[in-house]
Amino acid sequence: MQRFKNILFVCDEQSAYELALDRVVWLATANDAAVTLVSTIDSGGANDVSKLFSMIPGLGNQEIGETIIAVHRAKLDERATTLRDKGIAVDTKLLIGTPFIEIIRQVIKGRHDLVIKGAHRAAGRRFFPGADMHLLRKCPCPIWVLNAATEPKSQRILVAVDPDSENTGRDSLNQTLMELATSLARADGAKLDVMNVWRLQEEATLRHGLSSILDNDIDRLVSTAQNDSKARLKALVSGFSEFDDLMRVLHIKGVAGDVIPEHVAAEGIDTIVMGTLTRTGVAGLFIGNTAETILNHVSCSVLTAKAPGFATPIGTGAAGGLN
Rank of each mutant, 00 (worst) to 15 (best):
Q155Y: 05
R186A: 02
M195H: 04
F128P: 02
T150P: 00
S165T: 12
S154D: 07
A148V: 11
A190W: 01
K153C: 10
L136N: 00
S165M: 12
G124F: 07
G124E: 11
I157F: 00
A119S: 08
F127V: 02
L184R: 10
K153A: 10
P129E: 03
L114H: 03
T150Y: 08
R121I: 10
M178R: 02
G169E: 14
P129D: 05
L173V: 12
I116D: 08
A148Q: 13
R137A: 11
S154L: 05
S154E: 07
D164F: 14
A119K: 04
R121M: 03
V115S: 03
I116C: 13
T182S: 08
Q175H: 15
R111Y: 09
S183D: 10
R170I: 15
L146F: 00
E151N: 13
L177G: 08
D188H: 04
A185Y: 04
R156N: 10
G118W: 07
Q155V: 02
G124H: 10
W144H: 07
R126C: 00
R111N: 15
K191L: 04
R170Y: 13
S154F: 13
N174F: 06
R126P: 01
A185M: 02
R137P: 03
L135G: 01
T182R: 04
A181E: 00
N167G: 08
V161Y: 07
P129H: 04
A190G: 08
F128N: 00
L158T: 05
R125S: 11
N147L: 04
H134G: 10
L114S: 04
T168I: 15
H134Y: 12
V161F: 09
A160K: 06
L136C: 01
D171E: 14
V161P: 09
G118L: 05
A190S: 13
N147A: 12
G169R: 15
A149H: 11
A160M: 09
R125W: 05
L136E: 00
L173H: 08
N196T: 06
H120L: 07
M133I: 03
H134D: 15
R111W: 11
R186G: 00
P142K: 03
G130S: 10
G169L: 13
R186H: 01
T182A: 08
N167E: 14
G169V: 13
R186Y: 03
N174T: 06
L158F: 01
I157R: 00
V194D: 03
H112F: 14
A181T: 06
E179W: 00
P163R: 11
V115W: 02
V115A: 04
L146E: 02
T176A: 15
N147H: 13
S172I: 15
T176V: 14
T176I: 11
L135P: 01
